[in-house]
Protein backbone atom coordinates (compact mmCIF):
# COMPACT_ATOMS: atom_id res chain seq x y z
CA UNK A 1 0.00 0.00 0.00
CA UNK A 2 1.39 3.37 -0.98
CA UNK A 3 1.84 5.61 2.02
CA UNK A 4 2.01 9.33 1.23
CA UNK A 5 4.95 11.18 2.75
CA UNK A 6 6.72 14.49 2.51
CA UNK A 7 10.49 14.57 2.60
CA UNK A 8 12.46 17.78 2.45
CA UNK A 9 15.98 17.41 1.14
CA UNK A 10 17.74 20.08 3.18
CA UNK A 11 20.79 19.96 0.91
CA UNK A 12 18.55 21.31 -1.81
CA UNK A 13 16.15 23.61 0.02
CA UNK A 14 17.07 27.24 -0.59
CA UNK A 15 14.15 28.79 1.26
CA UNK A 16 12.63 30.21 -1.88
CA UNK A 17 9.13 29.80 -0.47
CA UNK A 18 7.66 28.44 -3.70
CA UNK A 19 6.03 25.70 -1.62
CA UNK A 20 4.35 28.35 0.49
CA UNK A 21 2.92 30.39 -2.35
CA UNK A 22 2.05 27.30 -4.40
CA UNK A 23 -0.06 26.17 -1.46
CA UNK A 24 -1.71 29.57 -1.18
CA UNK A 25 -2.37 29.62 -4.91
CA UNK A 26 -3.72 26.11 -5.14
CA UNK A 27 -5.87 26.11 -2.03
CA UNK A 28 -6.67 29.80 -1.91
CA UNK A 29 -5.39 29.95 1.64
CA UNK A 30 -6.10 33.32 3.16
CA UNK A 31 -3.64 35.77 4.66
CA UNK A 32 -2.55 34.68 8.09
CA UNK A 33 -3.04 30.95 7.57
CA UNK A 34 0.15 29.08 6.82
CA UNK A 35 -0.40 25.48 5.94
CA UNK A 36 3.21 25.31 4.91
CA UNK A 37 6.23 27.38 5.76
CA UNK A 38 9.97 27.25 5.47
CA UNK A 39 12.03 27.12 8.63
CA UNK A 40 15.65 28.18 8.60
CA UNK A 41 18.18 27.44 11.30
CA UNK A 42 21.50 29.21 11.71
CA UNK A 43 20.06 31.99 9.60
CA UNK A 44 22.92 34.00 8.15
CA UNK A 45 25.59 31.83 9.68
CA UNK A 46 27.77 29.02 8.40
CA UNK A 47 25.69 25.87 8.48
CA UNK A 48 22.49 27.67 7.53
CA UNK A 49 19.90 25.13 6.50
CA UNK A 50 16.25 25.40 5.57
CA UNK A 51 13.46 22.91 5.59
CA UNK A 52 9.92 23.19 4.35
CA UNK A 53 7.39 22.24 6.99
CA UNK A 54 3.72 21.36 6.96
CA UNK A 55 1.55 18.69 8.47
CA UNK A 56 3.70 15.56 8.47
CA UNK A 57 0.70 13.25 8.27
CA UNK A 58 1.94 11.24 11.24
CA UNK A 59 1.22 7.56 11.52
CA UNK A 60 0.17 7.93 15.13
CA UNK A 61 -1.01 11.51 14.91
CA UNK A 62 -0.92 13.38 18.25
CA UNK A 63 -3.55 15.80 16.98
CA UNK A 64 -5.98 12.94 16.56
CA UNK A 65 -5.08 11.56 19.96
CA UNK A 66 -6.02 14.74 21.77
CA UNK A 67 -9.01 15.81 19.72
CA UNK A 68 -12.05 15.84 22.04
CA UNK A 69 -14.51 15.50 19.15
CA UNK A 70 -12.54 12.97 17.14
CA UNK A 71 -12.58 15.02 13.98
CA UNK A 72 -9.39 13.52 12.54
CA UNK A 73 -9.17 10.50 10.33
CA UNK A 74 -6.38 8.81 8.40
CA UNK A 75 -7.00 7.71 4.84
CA UNK A 76 -5.73 4.57 3.21
CA UNK A 77 -3.09 6.77 1.57
CA UNK A 78 -1.89 7.55 5.13
CA UNK A 79 -3.00 11.15 4.85
CA UNK A 80 -4.32 12.73 8.05
CA UNK A 81 -7.45 14.76 7.37
CA UNK A 82 -10.06 16.32 9.54
CA UNK A 83 -13.65 17.42 9.42
CA UNK A 84 -14.30 21.09 9.84
CA UNK A 85 -17.86 20.26 10.53
CA UNK A 86 -16.90 18.36 13.65
CA UNK A 87 -14.02 20.63 14.70
CA UNK A 88 -14.90 22.91 17.61
CA UNK A 89 -11.81 25.09 17.34
CA UNK A 90 -10.57 24.18 20.81
CA UNK A 91 -6.88 24.30 19.85
CA UNK A 92 -5.77 21.10 21.59
CA UNK A 93 -4.27 19.82 18.37
CA UNK A 94 -2.21 22.97 18.09
CA UNK A 95 -0.57 22.17 21.42
CA UNK A 96 -0.18 18.51 20.61
CA UNK A 97 1.36 18.95 17.18
CA UNK A 98 5.17 19.03 17.26
CA UNK A 99 5.28 20.82 13.91
CA UNK A 100 2.88 23.71 14.40
CA UNK A 101 0.72 22.44 11.59
CA UNK A 102 -2.76 23.35 12.84
CA UNK A 103 -3.76 26.90 11.96
CA UNK A 104 -6.71 28.94 13.10
CA UNK A 105 -8.40 31.81 11.39
CA UNK A 106 -8.93 34.76 13.62
CA UNK A 107 -12.59 35.54 13.70
CA UNK A 108 -14.26 38.28 15.64
CA UNK A 109 -12.75 41.03 17.67
CA UNK A 110 -11.62 38.97 20.62
CA UNK A 111 -9.40 36.59 18.75
CA UNK A 112 -11.48 33.53 19.43
CA UNK A 113 -10.55 30.63 17.27
CA UNK A 114 -12.38 29.49 14.24
CA UNK A 115 -12.24 26.00 12.84
CA UNK A 116 -8.83 24.49 12.53
CA UNK A 117 -7.15 24.47 9.12
CA UNK A 118 -4.07 22.57 8.08
CA UNK A 119 -2.29 20.95 5.18
CA UNK A 120 -4.49 18.31 3.58
CA UNK A 121 -1.76 16.85 1.39
CA UNK A 122 -3.88 18.43 -1.32
CA UNK A 123 -6.43 15.72 -0.60
CA UNK A 124 -9.47 17.73 0.41
CA UNK A 125 -11.66 16.62 3.27
CA UNK A 126 -14.65 14.48 4.12
CA UNK A 127 -16.96 16.13 1.61
CA UNK A 128 -17.39 14.62 -1.81
CA UNK A 129 -14.19 14.57 -3.80
CA UNK A 130 -13.78 17.69 -5.89
CA UNK A 131 -17.12 19.05 -4.83
CA UNK A 132 -17.77 22.72 -4.29
CA UNK A 133 -18.16 22.13 -0.57
CA UNK A 134 -14.85 20.35 -0.34
CA UNK A 135 -13.11 23.04 -2.35
CA UNK A 136 -14.53 25.80 -0.22
CA UNK A 137 -13.66 24.24 3.12
CA UNK A 138 -10.41 22.43 2.41
CA UNK A 139 -9.08 23.57 -0.94
CA UNK A 140 -8.05 21.31 -3.76
CA UNK A 141 -8.07 17.54 -3.94
CA UNK A 142 -5.13 16.84 -6.19
CA UNK A 143 -4.77 13.31 -4.96
CA UNK A 144 -8.21 12.55 -6.34
CA UNK A 145 -7.18 14.17 -9.59
CA UNK A 146 -4.20 11.84 -9.89
CA UNK A 147 -1.69 14.46 -8.84
CA UNK A 148 0.48 15.25 -5.84
CA UNK A 149 0.58 18.27 -3.52
CA UNK A 150 1.44 21.35 -5.54
CA UNK A 151 4.06 22.53 -3.01
CA UNK A 152 6.23 19.55 -3.84
CA UNK A 153 5.41 19.58 -7.52
CA UNK A 154 6.54 23.19 -7.83
CA UNK A 155 9.60 23.08 -5.55
CA UNK A 156 12.26 25.13 -7.31
CA UNK A 157 15.21 22.87 -6.61
CA UNK A 158 13.31 19.61 -6.29
CA UNK A 159 14.02 19.64 -2.58
CA UNK A 160 10.52 18.86 -1.39
CA UNK A 161 9.52 15.35 -2.27
CA UNK A 162 6.02 13.99 -1.99
CA UNK A 163 4.29 10.80 -2.97
CA UNK A 164 4.60 7.09 -2.32
CA UNK A 165 7.10 6.71 0.54
CA UNK A 166 8.93 3.91 -1.21
CA UNK A 167 9.39 5.95 -4.32
CA UNK A 168 10.61 9.08 -2.59
CA UNK A 169 12.96 7.19 -0.33
CA UNK A 170 14.41 5.55 -3.42
CA UNK A 171 14.87 8.94 -5.07
CA UNK A 172 16.44 10.30 -1.93
CA UNK A 173 18.78 7.34 -1.53
CA UNK A 174 19.99 7.82 -5.06
CA UNK A 175 20.76 11.44 -4.28
CA UNK A 176 22.74 10.59 -1.19
CA UNK A 177 24.81 8.00 -2.98
CA UNK A 178 25.49 10.29 -5.94
CA UNK A 179 26.52 13.12 -3.65
CA UNK A 180 28.82 10.94 -1.68
CA UNK A 181 28.16 12.65 1.59
CA UNK A 182 25.88 12.20 4.54
CA UNK A 183 22.20 12.61 4.60
CA UNK A 184 20.77 16.07 4.45
CA UNK A 185 17.43 14.77 5.55
CA UNK A 186 15.98 16.74 8.34
CA UNK A 187 16.67 15.39 11.79
CA UNK A 188 19.09 12.75 10.60
CA UNK A 189 21.95 14.06 12.68
CA UNK A 190 19.74 14.42 15.71
CA UNK A 191 18.65 10.84 15.41
CA UNK A 192 21.90 9.21 14.40
CA UNK A 193 24.58 11.77 15.31
CA UNK A 194 27.42 12.85 13.05
CA UNK A 195 29.21 9.54 13.11
CA UNK A 196 26.66 7.55 11.17
CA UNK A 197 26.83 7.90 7.43
CA UNK A 198 24.40 6.68 4.89
Amino acid sequence: MARMKFLCDADRCIECNACVTACKNENDVPWGINRRRVVTINDGKPGERSVSMACMHCTDAPCAAVCPVDCFYTTEDAVVLHSKELCIGCGYCFYACPFGAPQYPKVGNFGSRGKMDKCTYCAGGPEDDLSAAEQAAYGSNRLAEGKLPLCAEMCSTKALLAGDHEMISEIYKERVSKRGYGSGAWGWKTAYKETINV
Partner: peptide
Protein backbone atom coordinates in the same frame (compact mmCIF):
# COMPACT_ATOMS: atom_id res chain seq x y z
CA UNK B 1 10.78 21.09 -15.27
CA UNK B 2 7.57 21.97 -13.48
CA UNK B 3 9.03 24.13 -10.77
CA UNK B 4 8.81 27.75 -9.71
CA UNK B 5 10.08 30.02 -6.99
CA UNK B 6 7.77 31.91 -4.64
CA UNK B 7 7.09 34.50 -7.34
CA UNK B 8 6.37 32.04 -10.12
CA UNK B 9 4.17 29.90 -7.90
CA UNK B 10 2.17 33.02 -7.02
CA UNK B 11 2.06 34.57 -10.46
CA UNK B 12 -1.62 33.94 -11.06
Amino acid sequence: RGTHCAKGAAIR
